[in-house]
Amino acid sequence: MSSEGGGKARNRRGLSGWLNPYHYNFERWAYVFQRVTGIAILAYVIGHLGDTSFFVGGPIGTGPSQSSWTFISGIVENSFGHLILVLVVLVVIFHGTNGLRLIASEMGLILGRPASIEYPYKPRSLRLGQRALIWAAIILAVVGAAWAAMILFGGLA
């Protein structure tokens, strides 16, 4: 903890506030996963721009090239590459579905209205209305990834 002048010590959580949802609510966990999966998907997309460029002969290619495509396929089309694809399908479906929940929530569509409150306090915004969509995101992601695994590993390719 660094000093903040006036004899006070700075105590902001820093990145652990983003990454560690322990002790907090379900939505906080969804927040962490949304952020982490977003970065992971962008990293994959950038890599995917690289591998798909081999369809036209690589980064400095000039047109569709079968030999170049065969070359890159030899590198990415294996069990490890397919495992990555299954994980990508998992996080993409989660990020997309959870993102729809966030848009609807942030536009105030699925949170209910302010109302008089009673003990014990239960926040309206953290009720099943939007929370069900987190579960939907998880279930859809797992089903989608299982399907992708069946296609890539189960002989449906």
């Binding site: 907090y24 927040y31 942030e106 302010p114 409150i117 915004s125």
Partner: peptide
């Protein structure tokens, strides 16, 4: 704000800040 909702989770007075902020966004 990205609607992590922790504010509403810890509020001892039932204010539900996350609800107020989302309603503000529109």
């Amino acid at each position: 704000c990205h609607f992590a909702g922790s504010c509403s989770y810890v509020c001892p007075k039932g204010v539900d800040p996350a609800l107020g902020i989302q309603l503000l966004k529109r």
